[in-house]
Computed example of a mutant assay.
Amino acid sequence: MAYEVAAPKYVRLAQTLQGRIEDGTYPPGSLVPSENQLVQAFGMSRPTVVRALDLLKRDGWLESRQGFGTIVRGRPEVVEQKDQRGREALERSEASTSGRLVDVAQVPVPPRVAAALGIPRRAKVLVRRLLVEEDGEPVELSSSYFPVGLAEGTSLADSAPLGEGLRAHLEARRKIRFDHVTERVSARRPSEEEAGLLALPPGEPVLSVFVVACDVSGQALQVVDVLLPADRQELEDTYRLG
């Protein structure tokens, strides 16, 4: 069964409005047309228009100002983070990463992954598990999960390491586009197998960086569970107080 990612109407409208911001039709600081004007101009329902505007506000293209309306902010600034485990897991080449592929198989979907991908709990997913090493020591276990249908027509089910990033491979083979990533960091006890692969002593916890990669509509395309030995990690951030 083919895996289709059809953009809803509100997403297509948001993309059109975004394009007009980028080409200068709606310059930064200007007012976007009112909801009524957009309904009439595009022949779409008010709820569709509202959802499109909300999507652009969420992503930083627009903002609401009381007494003024909806203002164009322009292209959002890209905030560079010190540690982007999700981006690294999506973009690194398996073939050039020090380590080895532990497993490539269809497996029953873990409950947390099923919820993120929006698939039934009895379904199966394709998993690629990569053990990353530094100086011969295991430092990370990265498990990437994909809907089985999405993997069709790709080399994701092959046991050989990919010479390109998982994101680049999917975007090229399936003509889809990754848009944003959500990362959730938590601590947990590893399974016996996970502890063995990471060479952890009994009872040693791991940090789990749970990465959900989505297209512009919010449809999850890939989930990655990155496990890191907790005693070798330190999280730090610096930000201003306003």
Rank of each mutant, 00 (worst) to 15 (best):
G43I: 01
E236D: 08
S34I: 04
L117T: 09
P202S: 00
Q40H: 07
V107W: 00
K9C: 09
L198F: 06
L38R: 05
Q18T: 07
E4R: 10
V50N: 02
V209C: 01
T25M: 06
Q40P: 01
V72F: 14
V223W: 06
G43R: 03
V107G: 06
E204R: 06
V102C: 03
T16A: 14
L207P: 02
D135K: 15
R177C: 01
L197E: 00
G19A: 08
T154S: 09
V132Y: 04
S98C: 10
L31E: 13
V102D: 03
S208C: 11
D231W: 11
D225R: 02
R75K: 15
V223L: 03
E91I: 03
G19C: 00
E152K: 14
V39A: 03
Q15W: 02
V132G: 02
I176C: 05
E234H: 13
M44V: 08
G149M: 09
E134W: 11
S143G: 06
A95G: 00
L55W: 00
Y3V: 07
Q219V: 03
R12T: 15
L166Q: 03
F42A: 04
G163V: 03
Y239V: 02
P202G: 03
L170H: 12
L126F: 10
R51L: 13
P202A: 03
E77N: 12
R188I: 10
I71G: 02
M1R: 12
P147E: 01
D179S: 15
L156G: 01
R12V: 13
Q81R: 04
